[in-house]
Nucleic acid binder design. Structure first.
Lengths: 146, 146
DNA sequence: CCGATATTATATGGTTAGCTTATTATATGG
DNA sequence: CCATATAATAAGCTAACCATATAATATCGG
């Protein structure tokens, strides 16, 4: 019996993962969607970056990021400060209020990850991570051709 | 330097993959989105199944499948036949017209896969596929708990 | 046989996460 | 100092999902 092609596995797995994350966040009382939480985590990971730089890190169009940041800012979890070196640009920072949410996000994400990787040895987890990172890099690179 | 967590890699990779597939389909003249093409490929993979069975295979809600099939049927690529054993149910089949499109879809998907897996050895490809299938199975299973 | 319950597909309507294109404000190079 | 580039954003679109409700049909208990 033929199996679904690899691309479908990837898209399916990602959709299920996102759904799992969404439900984990809903349960844990953090009022954030997967995309918002992802953005918050990236701001934490790359602090004091400009929006455009953050968008590059996230492999997302700047306009997509604007929406996420709008909501996070409205919730008081991030702040946009005008870059003193360039008044067009904005520097994105976490606020103090973000810390507890970030912690719950991290916990929920860890739970989801644990379920996704159930039955994986440490080596398998590392291998999966590394292969996935290479796939992502391949696809991100081939996006800059047109 | 910290790296983005695994879940984000997965979601990012899938988004980039879907975008890549969409552009490949657009270029190749097949007027299908990634979701529609995925559905068509699943119909090919699991022929003469009921919609509900197909939805299970695709890990999608029945209502999501309805939309995809509506469009594929309007394009004349699939047909819905009433199941003689149960007049509520419909059996989904490919039409003869689907063959060329299916071929172009397969080719476009293969091209995207090749880009995603650039630099992978055969062993790495197989490993990635197998790990991904396990992740998908884990997540699909843990979806039936609530 | 009959009524209650379950199942199959679907209509309706909403959400999330993206995108493109155009606009505004500010920088910067000639 | 003007032309062009860049940073964020506004506006509006699409795809891909989901949940809830409904109509038709099956099925099971009595």
């Amino acid at each position: 019996m033929n199996e679904p092609p690899l691309g479908f596995l990837l898209v399916d797995a990602a959709r299920l993962y996102r759904a799992r994350i969404d439900s984990a966040f809903e349960q844990s009382g953090v009022g954030l969607t997967a995309g918002e939480a992802r953005t918050l985590a990236y701001v934490n990971l790359y602090p004091a970056h400009r929006q455009s730089a953050l968008a590059v890190k996230m492999n997302v169009e700047p306009m997509t990021l604007v929406g996420f940041l709008d909501r996070l800012e409205a919730l008081g979890l991030v702040a946009r400060e005008t870059d003193p070196a360039d008044r067009r640009a904005k520097i994105v920072r976490l606020t103090a209020a973000a810390a507890p949410d970030l912690e719950r996000i991290t916990a929920a994400a860890a739970a989801a990850r644990q379920e996704a990787l159930a039955g994986f040895s440490d080596e398998e987890q590392a291998a999966f991570r590394s292969l996935l990172a290479r796939v992502r890099a391949n696809l991100a690179r081939c996006k800059e051709a047109p």
